[in-house]
């Protein structure tokens, strides 16, 4: 098992109170496996990703749980130890390729420094590795492009550069935080193809954070659906997306036009995700849920059938999405 997250909690201690952005999250990612972490904005999926890398900014911090990476707990490691792991064994790709590269440094500088942050090699060798990584992600004439600055690349190309940077050390795990959301559909599928190919080629595990169920369905083997800082349903892609049990997952599926038959109307989930500062008692989804009953005022525990986990008092076994 490459990554095993157990009961992870990341809280933000603000003046308005404690925001439980991540509140008891558990999931596993095997070697070469891709896990889709799905949820609305504010569900805590990005914070989960940052927690794994130890990149939660104050006033937030990991308050409990374990992050077992290759069997070793990352929680409570010193900043020095985490720095040695970041970029070397666990890499991250961000959402907006326009923002992730430093605008005033050349691609070469930004790649060479990444190589040399972990491996004591000469500049020439670091450069050679950068050229190779750019080639891997399909940047034409990588040797010349290395001297360019971020503004000379399109969004899709910049995201390829960011992926190339993530690949420089052949990490065992990549956290991808909505890396295709900001891109055109055609570019999106090109990037997905690159990632899919490289993950198989190098046996890299991936945590793919997304709100796009379609992308996750095509890419991941496992899905975890997050709502209000918790995982409400998790299992294989086939189980969760074809036979969703949790009313929230069903609601998400119904919000995607592609999942509907012609003429059927979209049924969006009513209301908004609750603020992490003011979560309702009991099941946090009950106020927006079509299946809510009096039982939902208590907190639902996780239950499972055949490895398909859900956290609900009124599981929807019969309903097709």
């Amino acid at each position: 098992m490459t990554l095993k997250v157990e009961n992870l909690s990341t809280h933000f201690f603000t003046r308005e109170g404690v925001a439980k952005a991540v509140d008891g999250v558990s999931f596993e990612v095997g070697r070469g496996e891709i896990l889709g972490l799905v949820g609305e904005s504010g569900s805590g999926k990005s914070i989960t990703g940052f927690s794994i890398l130890g990149l939660v900014d104050p006033p937030g911090r990991v308050t409990g749980g374990k992050i077992l990476f290759q069997g070793q707990d990352l929680v409570g490691r010193s900043p020095h130890e985490m720095r040695a792991i970041r970029g070397k064994r666990i890499a991250m790709i961000f959402q907006d390729p326009m923002m992730t590269l430093n605008p005033v440094l050349s691609i070469e500088t930004q790649m060479v420094e990444t190589v040399r942050a972990h491996d004591k090699v000469s500049k020439a060798e670091a450069r050679a590795r950068a050229v190779e990584a750019l080639g891997l992600v399909g940047i034409p004439s990588p040797d010349e492009r290395l001297a360019a600055y971020p503004h000379q690349f399109s969004g899709g190309m910049r995201q390829r550069v960011a992926i190339a940077i993530a690949l420089l050390h052949r990490p065992e795990l990549i956290i991808a935080d909505e890396p295709t959301t900001a891109l055109d559909v055609t570019i999106q599928s090109q990037i997905l193809a690159v990632i899919q190919r490289l993950s198989t080629e190098f046996g890299m595990s991936l945590v793919w954070i997304s709100h796009d169920l379609g992308v996750v369905a095509g890419l991941a083997q496992k899905v975890a659906v997050m709502y209000a800082g918790r995982i409400v349903e998790t299992g294989t892609v086939d189980d969760v997306l074809d036979r969703p049990i949790h009313p929230y997952t069903i609601g998400l599926m119904r919000s995607v036009p592609a999942n509907l038959d012609r003429g059927e109307t979209l049924t969006p989930i009513p209301g908004m995700a609750p603020s992490p500062l003011k979560r309702p008692s009991g099941c946090p989804f009950r106020l927006r849920c079509f299946a809510a009953t009096a039982a939902c005022e208590a907190e639902p525990e996780a239950a499972a059938i055949d490895g398909h986990l859900y956290r609900c008092f009124n599981p929807q076994f019969e309903r097709a999405a």
Binding site: L55, A84, R86, K88, M92
Partner: peptide
């Protein structure tokens, strides 16, 4: 943040 994620 990306620079941190690179391990700089």
């Amino acid at each position: 943040k990306f620079a941190r994620a690179k391990g700089l």
